[in-house]
Amino acid sequence: MLSTRYTSTFKKLKKQKRLGFCPFAILGDSTEEECIKRVTAYINAGADMLELGIPFSDPIADGPIVAQASQRALDAGITTKKCITLIKKIRTATTVPIGILCYANSVHAYGIESFYKDIAKAGADSVLIADCPPEELAPFYNSAHKNGIHCICIVTQDTDRKRLKIIEKFATGFLYVVSTLGVTGTRTALNPKIADTIKFLKKSTTLPLSIGFGLSSKEHLCAIQKAGADCGIVGSYLVKRGSAELPAILDKLDIKPLD
């Protein structure tokens, strides 16, 4: 059976009229210890769910901040196997949903079936493969669902009804809505199209909407909250800080429920 953590978390958020907060970290950045400190800061700041990235040598969907974090972690000797051990450790510290972000070759090299089996055992709830559109998802999807893991799919401002139908054949848990064209990274301004994208999606799907890519301030989070998003994923803006300065930064991102 698929993990139920997302359903209950999004239900709770809806009841509290709160925007979910989902911080992102690269596993093993810059070392395994440093990564645990970072994620602990996230949990202490009240993260509603986590996105954790498995480093890959050629991350084509990532901008410089996350790409460099991945390289740092790889240079420090992280492997997919060690990432899974880290996830297990993080799971002992929290009950919030844990999503994995990775690239197809990491899963392929590990062995598709064993990958999903092992991350399920470690306590993860979902996997988003950044370079795996629905066209290529079938073999991954089969192993994921066999092991109770959600396949998270990406939608963009270009996703129309027809494409959404294709995506929905695989997507469960939530939809990852990329706020802008391009790669991960901080942005000064939020893409103004995001409000329309959210509006269209709310009409067309029952899946919760988590917005990611470029969210870099409290204002950005407030804006997507107003537009109707269920959760905001903050990556590069946090990844570029050391774990020591994180609590202060996270404090500033705290936003109020809608009245």
């Binding site: 559109p133 066209e135 290529e136 799919c153 990406i154 963009t156 270009d158 494409r163």
Partner: peptide, 17 residues
């Protein structure tokens, strides 16, 4: 998009269209 078991379109959703 495949040549036997090789090839495909392993790209971010943004590049599909």
């Amino acid at each position: 998009s495949y040549f036997g078991e090789y090839g495909g379109q392993f790209i971010p959703e943004l590049l599909i269209k």
